[in-house]
């Protein structure tokens, strides 16, 4: 599904990604771990098409097509979804309106009929229960006055409504208590299917207890320095990053 080859990217002239290689197939769950500043978030932002980052070298193919040629919204319509680490607020725009606009943009792209307000409301209310969000949140401004945990659940709600082919979760576990973590993990697990893939970016192993990855990759200084199965995550939890020769001074 997704093939990343020798990807280099920089922000404000500073190189962050220094040659990433990664293959993700449909049905797989990948986790990217690594200390702060290793480039984890940059990788997710670059894949989603944040224009603040400049790709300087390498290529990313999605189903064989050059992803980097596409605008952010085109990537989204092709099924790339990014759950943000710090979801931004849009005051005055109701969550309901925002979500329906997004869902209908994707439906239009697929040549499907747009959902009217009533149909969508029914769907959105059902789905919000799945992530334990009171349907009243749908009436509020996008992320406006939401707590950290509510924002994260709202991101998963969006993923469930948009049904992406590749869901990228950027530190979705940060700032969540154990109950909220469980809710979020259940949501992600509900997304898993043989047609979809999940790429989780996380600093800690605890999310991986709930969403078990097929592959774990360790990112350090803009490169993947080690890959393995889910057992690698436990090893990192026990031994830290030091044994891989990584200086985790920032993280500690």
């Amino acid at each position: 599904m997704l093939s990343i080859k020798n990807l280099h990217a920089s922000v404000e002239g500073k190189e962050i990604l220094k040659g990433i290689n990664l293959e993700i197939k449909a049905g797989e769950v990948h986790a990217i771990m690594g200390p702060n500043g290793s480039g984890k978030s940059t990788l997710s932002q670059v894949l989603a098409g944040n224009e603040a980052f400049e790709v300087t070298e390498g290529e990313v193919l999605m189903d064989g097509n050059n992803l980097l040629d596409l605008e952010t919204e085109e990537r989204a319509r092709d099924g790339i979804f990014l759950a943000f680490q710090y979801p931004v607020e849009i005051p005055g725009v109701s969550n309901m309106q925002f979500l329906r606009t997004a869902v209908n943009s994707l439906r239009r792209h697929r040549g499907e009929e747009e959902m009217n307000a009533a149909e969508f409301m029914k769907l959105a209310r059902e789905t919000s229960k799945q992530v334990d969000l009171d349907p009243n949140f749908l009436k509020r401004g996008v992320n406006e006055g939401f707590s950290g945990g509510e924002k994260k659940r709202n991101e998963i709600l969006q993923a469930l409504l948009l049904q992406p082919r590749l869901a990228i979760l950027d530190e979705t576990d940060s700032g969540l208590d154990i109950d909220a973590l469980k809710v979020v993990a259940d949501g992600v697990n509900a997304l898993k299917s043989k047609d979809r893939a999940v790429l989780m970016v996380t600093h800690y192993q605890r999310l991986l207890n709930h969403i078990v990855p097929d592959y774990v990759h360790v990112l350090a200084d803009g490169r993947i320095v080690k890959s393995g199965g889910s057992e690698l995550a436990f090893e990192l939890e026990e031994r830290g990053y030091g044994w891989l020769g990584i200086n985790d001074a920032v993280a500690s």
Partner: peptide, 20 residues
Amino acid sequence: FLCRQRGIDPEQAVSMIVNG
């Protein structure tokens, strides 16, 4: 970026934000 990442056209996004 949030709006566009959800598949919304930039012009529609601006209009939605302004309407809000």
